[in-house]
């Protein structure tokens, strides 16, 4: 169960090697989390992520999970929930893609969309249903500022996050009053392996700062969290910039 501060005792991370996901898990394990499920594509990285959390004292289990295989989600996730309550699900998988490359190869672009959006729709609904049956729990969804307004430089990724964001908001409304809390997290540029080698955007943050914001959002039962917090203001300004001007902005 969660405590008075929204800290979970059991955590399921979808995208078990995600740097943001693991930074969050580490923070929560330092507080109350004792059981962590890492769901992801089997790899040495997944195993070492599990070992890392074990060293912090958590009881960690890994499960094979592929966002691109929605037909398998029911079975995989069903097994996790059958083992006991999950207090928090962190939907952390995602791919950035390579915009220039993907524009030329539509099938590669489709993979971005399928991972970030379709995969999240299927696993998100399944987790939401299971949480609802428990009568409690948080579903934390890693969206992105990129979904807030389309940008020339990354609109394939951005549109998949826009879809995910809208989906998660709606799910939050659907689950209102069911004991399940849905929190949409919108980080800006985060220094992780996803962005390695890219030019940093302004207001860049770290996985641990995102984790910190998630912990605070849990405590307040927030529905939307921006990281860093000023992005809320920045983006609401940018949203109103006329398109001809926006196109020329170096954002």
């Amino acid at each position: 169960m969660k405590d008075a501060f929204g800290t979970p005792q059991t955590l399921l991370v979808l995208g078990g090697t995600s740097e943001i996901g693991l930074a969050t898990a580490r923070r929560l394990v330092a507080r109350r989390t004792r059981t962590v499920w890492l769901a992801g594509r089997p790899s040495p990285a997944l195993d070492s992520a599990a070992d890392g959390l074990r060293e912090l004292g958590a009881d960690v289990r890994t499960v094979p999970f592929d966002a691109l295989d929605p037909s398998g989600h029911e079975e995989v996730l069903g097994k996790v929930f059958a083992e006991g309550d999950i207090d928090m699900v962190l939907l952390a998988f995602g791919v950035l893609g390579d915009q220039a490359h993907d524009e030329a190869r539509p099938l590669a672009a489709v993979r971005v969309a399928q991972t970030n959006y379709t995969g999240a729709v299927s696993s998100g609904l399944i987790c939401a249903g299971a949480l609802q049956a428990q009568g409690h729990g948080s579903l934390v969804v890693l969206s992105s500022v990129a979904g807030e307004r389309a940008r020339r430089a990354n609109f394939i990724y951005g549109s998949s996050k826009a879809g995910l964001d809208t989906f998660a908001q709606g799910l939050g409304d659907a689950l209102h009053g069911t004991g399940v809390h849905v929190m949409v997290v919108r980080p800006g540029f985060v220094r992780s392996k996803m962005t390695a080698g890219l030019v940093e955007a302004p207001l860049a943050t770290t996985p641990d700062q995102v984790a910190q914001a998630i912990e605070k959002g849990l405590r307040r039962r927030s529905e939307t969290v921006w990281v860093p917090g000023v992005l809320r203001v920045v983006m609401s300004a940018l949203r109103h910039v006329p398109r001809p001007l926006f196109r020329r902005l170096p954002v």
């Binding site: 029911e74 996730l77 069903g78 929930f81 059958a82 083992e83 006991g84 309550d85 609904l125 399944i126 939401a128 249903g129 299971a130 609802q132 049956a133 428990q134 799910l171 659907a174 689950l175 069911t178």
Partner: peptide, 12 residues
């Protein structure tokens, strides 16, 4: 915990 019954849980 109640086992996840497919049909019921896909749409809250």
């Amino acid at each position: 915990c109640a086992p996840v019954a497919p049909a019921e849980h896909t749409a809250p």
